[in-house]
Simulated assay, not measured.
Amino acid sequence: MMRMLPGIVLALPAVCFAASPHCANWPTDMALIHLKNAGIADPARIDESRTKAVELATEKVGKDRYRQIYDITYHEKSGKEIRVITSSEASSEECSMGRVDVYVVSRKIGGP
């Protein structure tokens, strides 16, 4: 039993920290399509290297199914910033488990 203890201790973090999938690319890409279709942004004017997606929340909604909320900031080459909040569902197998709801943030008040 004592010989198995180091193996168990090393494997424990993988079990304890098993979390939802990291699927920032799917909502980031879909939000940009929604922004284009709404006439708010032109993908050709976006500086993709400065695009930032921050996962705000994850909720388990089923067996291996998670609702994920992202705060995504796009930067146009002109310097204009476009910010959205997205809600989408993902699994460990697939990031695109359904539609991506996109909310445009017109102004942030408070906080850093």
Rank of each mutant, 00 (worst) to 15 (best):
S78D: 05
D101C: 11
I8H: 02
L12S: 02
N37I: 00
V100M: 15
R99H: 06
L32N: 06
R65F: 00
P43E: 01
I109A: 13
M30F: 11
L5N: 10
V102D: 10
Y103C: 09
E55A: 03
I40Q: 04
S49G: 15
S87K: 11
V54I: 11
V84M: 09
S87Q: 15
A31H: 08
G39H: 00
S92T: 15
I109C: 04
P6S: 08
G79A: 07
V15C: 05
A31F: 09
S91V: 04
D47A: 12
R67Y: 12
R50N: 00
A44D: 04
P21S: 03
T86Y: 05
A14Q: 01
S78L: 06
P112M: 10
T73I: 13
Y74H: 05
R65Q: 10
E55Q: 04
S20M: 01
R107C: 14
K80H: 02
D101P: 00
F17K: 15
A44Q: 00
D101T: 03
R50E: 00
P112R: 14
D42S: 12
G111Q: 07
A14H: 06
P27F: 11
S87D: 13
A19F: 14
V105R: 01
A41H: 04
T28G: 04
V9W: 11
M30S: 12
G111L: 06
A14G: 13
P43Y: 03
I40W: 03
Y70P: 08
D42Y: 07
I40V: 11
V61S: 08
Y70S: 04
A90Q: 12
M30A: 10
Y74A: 06
D71L: 04
D29M: 07
L56N: 05
V54H: 03
A57D: 13
M97F: 03
G110A: 09
I33A: 12
S87M: 11
I72G: 00
D47W: 00
P43T: 09
P21I: 07
L12R: 03
N25T: 15
L32I: 12
S88L: 05
S78Y: 02
I33C: 13
L35P: 14
L10T: 14
K63P: 04
G98R: 13
S20W: 12
H34P: 01
S91I: 09
I69D: 08
G39E: 01
